[in-house]
Design a protein around this nucleic acid. Structure first.
Lengths: 201, 201
DNA sequence: TATTGCAATGAGTGTATACTCACTGAGTGT
DNA sequence: ACACTCAGTGAGTATACACTCATTGCAATA
């Protein structure tokens, strides 16, 4: 075996635990998932989990921040330079849909999670802010969108999305809420942004 | 003593428990409040709680549905006939603000609660739907508001409000989010509803 | 080959919390 | 006055978890 075999093995187990945790959290919900569940899903002993992560909360925080990194990268990739508000929101919908199950659990359990986890979640959701700001300024500049404050657009958008995600079983039982309602929401938000035309331009 | 003294006493204790539960839930959060907390707040023995309510969930559901009734009555009182969308949303803000602490806890814990509790919450939030529908039809009729589907207005409004409530510690630390952000939100939503004026009317 | 280091194990511990039940004593009807 | 009912009590039980640690056995090193 290579000299690093042992370290590699440990690292592998660690990744396995992180991945299994993500899946269990997505499936059963964050607060309903126990350390036993995660260990079993990973195929390791219960105690092994604590060899890699001092506490359950620590594991959870790492799962979330890893998730945040993935989302951040994805967002960067999807939001091409020079896009308008519609393109940014569309990209956001696509990403949320791709990771919908975990995203929804995050929204549901979010407010009850430990502070560092909550901060990470806030950060993830603010990832869109930077791009949205640029796109909005651009659209307003070329008068394809009426002037609105970014923070209001952002908060109504995130809030609405979270609401649909948290109640996905009511809005789209057994399906993706984003797939069933995303386009409608996007169109509605864009119609809210249509510039007021002057009475006698 | 009147012949009903014993029954009256029991009823009184029951009310006391319901009231104490409401306060504890508002203060500590729903999932963080234990049956011991509630009994102590009511000044009765732990066991007494279970004499009146078979399970903690049962007590919780009753607290929520009582709350729903109060909200419903309040809403009926505040939303006078013939009001427009702005008046309805304003009334909604006023009510939410009055009961903000419990309302926020409901929004935070809501998605994790037992089904019957979740249904009650949905019902409470839908209480506004009936009035909003009428008001919107009226406003659209007299062209003071552009035509939009009720459900989209409703869901974006509720979703946004919930988002602000769930994160009130970030939006308005130590204060009422509705007091600090309510008017701004209301104005923004109304501006979204402004009719598009024809190019050359 | 012998020795050491370390990832992995899983039965065991501690704690939090919902719920029970045998008992108490004051109110109620005769 | 007496027996009976029943709201109220609180120590006790059951369960579900997160977390521990003495032990194991394989891989790295001498």
């Amino acid at each position: 075996m290579a000299a690093s075999s042992r370290k590699e093995q440990k690292e592998h187990t660690r990744e396995l635990l992180l991945e299994s945790a993500l899946q269990e959290f997505s499936r059963k919900g964050i607060s309903a998932t126990t350390t036993v569940d995660i260990a079993r899903a990973a195929g390791v002993a219960h105690g092994t989990l604590f060899l890699h992560f001092p506490t359950r909360d620590d594991l959870l925080v790492r799962v979330i921040s890893d998730f945040g990194l993935r989302i951040g990268r994805e967002f960067k990739r999807l939001s091409r330079e020079g896009g308008g508000v519609r393109e940014i929101l569309r990209a956001h919908l696509d990403i949320v849909q791709e990771y919908e199950s975990f995203y929804a659990q995050l929204v549901i359990a979010g407010p009850l999670l430990p502070v560092d986890a909550r901060n990470d979640i806030f950060l993830i959701q603010s990832g869109i802010a930077y791009y949205l700001k640029k796109a909005l300024a651009r659209d307003i500049g070329e008068k394809s969108v009426r002037p609105v404050p970014v923070h209001l657009l952002l908060n109504t958008w995130i809030g609405t999305l979270n609401y649909y995600l948290a109640n996905r079983d009511k809005f789209a039982p057994g399906q993706s809420v984003i797939a069933t309602h995303g386009q409608e929401l996007l169109d509605y938000f864009m119609s809210n942004l249509e510039p007021f035309r002057k009475e006698r331009e």
